[in-house]
């Protein structure tokens, strides 16, 4: 506990990041328990109302409560972020580890594949997937998950190359432990801290990509809300109802900032450990 306090005091980035993420996470949990107003039901009586005691963040052009919609949309943000992290960990990491560890033609193949994916801007790749498979929540998640793979694979590959020549790995090889066990039991734990950092930054990236896609009308489909979509709708009302853009813009900013700070903080923390 004391240790925790010390970290919090010395590592402000980490603390602020963690607080932001926790705050938004609890909002997401709240959306399952309580929504102040039905988020998808239009109401002609409440069109474009400014923030008030009844509608904390005002209402949109169809009279829907913005706060409720922000809450509901946070589920999408977290779902997309988590999906990209899971895909990165389950597909990207093993691929990178194996490539770095075995080397040779397999490594070359993995590397080329990653280069090819990196050569195409991520949003463009997502657009391509969406135009092939159609719009929809599942396609969006798939596209963003696929995009996350190279980031993790590259990180895992670099670490594997560094680590595979260390004495203890050489030893495990010599005494005949199977490669799969070496990879996952002896190599993987070393990646813990850098994976944490990558996941944190990757999460933020995924949320931003989803917001971008939804802004373009390609992500989450109506009537379900998404922060990006809300932002694009708000753009039409920039002059007469600025609170709309403010609410969704702030939500995106806070979540992305939170995860970025968390990632930076975690990196500082692991660097610190290494020094000690």
């Amino acid at each position: 506990m004391k240790n925790f306090k010390k970290i919090a005091k010395e590592n402000k980035t980490l603390t602020i990041g963690a607080i932001l993420v926790l705050f938004l996470f609890s909002l997401m949990i709240l959306s399952f328990i309580y929504l102040p107003h039905p988020p998808n039901t239009p109401s002609s009586a409440n069109q474009l109302k400014p923030p008030s005691a009844t509608f904390w963040l005002g209402t949109d052009h169809l009279g829907r409560d913005v706060f409720s919609r922000i809450l509901l949309a946070s589920r999408t943000a977290f779902l997309v972020g988590s999906a990209s992290v899971v895909a990165g960990l389950l597909l990207g990491v093993p691929l990178g580890l194996a490539g770095g560890y075995f080397g040779g033609w397999f490594d070359a193949l993995v590397l080329r594949l990653l280069d090819a994916m990196k050569a195409i801007p991520s949003l463009l790749l997502a657009l391509m997937l969406i135009s092939v498979f159609g719009t929809g929540m599942s396609v969006t998640i798939l596209a963003i998950a696929v995009l996350a793979i190279p980031l993790y694979a590259r990180m895992a590959r670099n670490s594997a190359i560094q680590l595979k020549n260390l004495d203890y790995i050489q030893w495990t090889k010599m005494i005949g432990i199977p490669s799969s066990r070496i990879l996952f039991v002896h190599l993987l734990p070393n990646l813990r801290s850098s994976l944490l950092v990558t996941a944190s930054l990757g999460f933020a990236n995924a949320v931003l990509t989803e917001a971008g896609l939804s802004y373009l009308g390609l992500g989450v489909q109506p009537p379900d809300p998404s922060w990006g979509k809300m932002l694009s709708e708000a753009q039409n009302n920039l002059f007469n109802a600025p609170w709309l853009a403010f609410a969704s813009g702030l939500a995106i900013t806070l979540l992305v900032l939170g995860f970025n700070l968390l990632g930076d903080g975690l990196r500082d923390l692991s660097d610190l450990h290494r020094k000690e």
């Binding site: 998808n40 002609s44 169809l62 009308g217 009537p223 709708e233």
Partner: peptide
């Protein structure tokens, strides 16, 4: 409903 037309989407929601 064609999603490229927010006007029709909004009508559909109402």
């Amino acid at each position: 409903v064609p999603t490229e037309y927010p006007f029709h989407v909004d009508t559909a929601l109402l």
